[in-house]
C-alpha cells in the first residue's frame, strides 16, 4: 500500500496535478496493482540478464549528413503559443 504522501510525490515527479479525489483513487489503484506485482520478488533471476529487444541486425548508425526537414511550419503550427518564432511560456528564471 502506498501512502498519500507517496502518491503526491509520484504525481509531482510526473508533473500531474491531481484533485483530492484522484489522490485517493490512485492510492487505492496503485496499491492494488503494486501488491499484485510483489509476485516477482521470489523469482530467481541473474544480474545482467535483462531482455535485449532490439534485433541484432538492426542499423546502429546514421551517416553524418544534413537533411533539412521540408515543412518546419508544420512543426510550429501545433504550438499552443508562439512568439518571435519560439515556443512561448511563462518566464523562467534559471536554467537547468
Amino acid at each position: 500500500m502506498l501512502t498519500k504522501e507517496e502518491v503526491l510525490k509520484i504525481a509531482r515527479l510526473a508533473r500531474l496535478e491531481l484533485t483530492d479525489d484522484e489522490v485517493s483513487f490512485y492510492q487505492n489503484r496503485l496499491g492494488r496493482v503494486l501488491d499484485y506485482m510483489t509476485e516477482l520478488k521470489g523469482i530467481e533471476t541473474r544480474e545482467g540478464t535483462g531482455v535485449r529487444h532490439v534485433p541484432l541486425d538492426s542499423e546502429k548508425f546514421r551517416n553524418d549528413e544534413v537533411v533539412t526537414f521540408p515543412d518546419k511550419e508544420a512543426l510550429l503550427q501545433n504550438a499552443p503559443a508562439l512568439e518571435e518564432g519560439g515556443f512561448l511560456l511563462p518566464a523562467i528564471m534559471e536554467t537547468e
Binding site: 544534413v66 518546419k72 519560439g86
Partner: peptide, 24 residues
C-alpha cells in the same frame, strides 16, 4: 564537430535563425 545533430539529420550549426534547424 559534426555536420548534423546527434540523433537526427538537422544541421549542427550555431547562430541560425530561431527554430530553423529543427525536425520531428
Amino acid at each position: 564537430l559534426t555536420k548534423s545533430k546527434m540523433f537526427c539529420a538537422c544541421a549542427n550549426q550555431y547562430g541560425a535563425e530561431i527554430n530553423t534547424n529543427i525536425c520531428p
